[in-house]
Design a protein around this nucleic acid. Structure first.
Lengths: 194, 194
DNA sequence: TTACTTTATTCACATAGGTGAACGAAAATC
DNA sequence: GATTTTCGTTCACCTATGTGAATAAAGTAA
């Protein structure tokens, strides 16, 4: 189901946008539709946008020295995704971002991002809260990775996002959990025996 | 060596503070000195401050269901530390924060934090950048944990922060790396054989 | 100095998760 | 609807890290 950026912003600000603010902001956005398996951000190329997912799913992943991919994040509708370091520092990205379904996106370029921060006072606050939430989540993810084994992380994940396995292939779920597909199979097998 | 909050802010803003801005802000800070092993934030109590470390070291850690502690973050001089989720949502903390040496801190309460955001326009920007950097770091940490084994993580850590083992006990370094002290000993032994 | 506590090392053994291969099922392509 | 490719499962074996105990070394207190 499609998620609007207006809702996303107002939910974080706990405040409605005026028509003027909303129009100013949307004029800075570029709508994009990409097909399954199309890539939006490339490792080693500068990531020039922040992306808001209106509909569909993306994932960001990293290719390690052995050529293996590790999914760092899924971006479902209503989420923002990017290689933030690349975006803010204008350096080559460390992550790739790719669509797992046909996906509708709103993209904001760095110039327009800075324009939004300057011209619409609320937006500095909005982006602070957006990033703050993302940071909190990633701190908790690190914490869970310390204290929970793969089985617990799997159970927590599907509890929190029950439709995940319907939307993304299992080997990417394994990757996100930090294990191999075979290991996730084994874990699922053990669970079904219980 | 003591780090000043003024430098910290100006470095992030890439811009100097006026005397007025600086004085407004420092009037909102409470200096605290705590002794080694004293605790600043308690799991299950609301974390009511953000802390800037002027001198010394703190660590934030989590106690898991087996009663084991996992160090999530070290806060050396020049760093900010807190349980951000607890702070922003007024809910009980998930992390503990404790001094590893006698430590000098500047604390800002939630009320004063909000005052700073409202009264000093630059501060919304400052905190966005502060949190943005922290988020980027934690994304990269997650990525490294996927692709590198404990030995590589250890080598990368001491390369990046060569004095770490002089300042904090080895079992906390192990904990931060996500392994047991015995395993870090083994890794160090293997490395010294090479 | 002596006693006590905390931290680091080493070892033998246990375990979670990785590896590589084989196979079938499902999905995509022709 | 036949063919090819991708995905998930299972298995036997491997490896990194965990576990618990013993011991030494360092730090702290009396």
């Amino acid at each position: 189901m499609k998620r609007t950026i207006k809702e996303n912003i107002e939910e974080k600000l706990k405040q409605e946008l005026t028509i003027d603010e909303y129009e100013k902001f949307t004029s800075l956005l570029e709508p994009i539709t990409i097909q399954k398996k199309q890539q939006l951000v490339f490792e080693d190329k500068v990531c020039k946008y922040l992306y808001f997912v209106e509909q569909g799913v993306l994932h960001s992943y990293l290719t390690d020295d052995n050529g293996e991919n590790h999914t760092i994040q899924f971006g479902f509708e209503g989420h923002w995704i990017s290689d933030l370091f690349s975006f803010v520092s204008n350096t080559p990205a460390t992550f790739n971002i790719e669509a797992l379904e046909e996906t509708e996106i709103l993209a904001i370029s760095k110039t327009n991002f800075e324009k939004a921060l300057q011209d619409i006072p609320k937006f500095e606050r909005f982006f602070r809260i957006l990033i703050q939430n993302a940071y909190i989540q990633s701190q908790h993810r690190i914490a869970k990775n310390y204290s929970d084994d793969a089985e617990h992380r799997y159970l927590a994940l599907i509890k929190q996002q029950p439709d995940l396995l319907q939307r993304v292939p299992q080997y990417l779920v394994a990757s996100y959990l930090g294990i191999k597909p075979q290991s996730l199979s084994r874990i699922r097998q053990n669970l079904s025996k219980k």
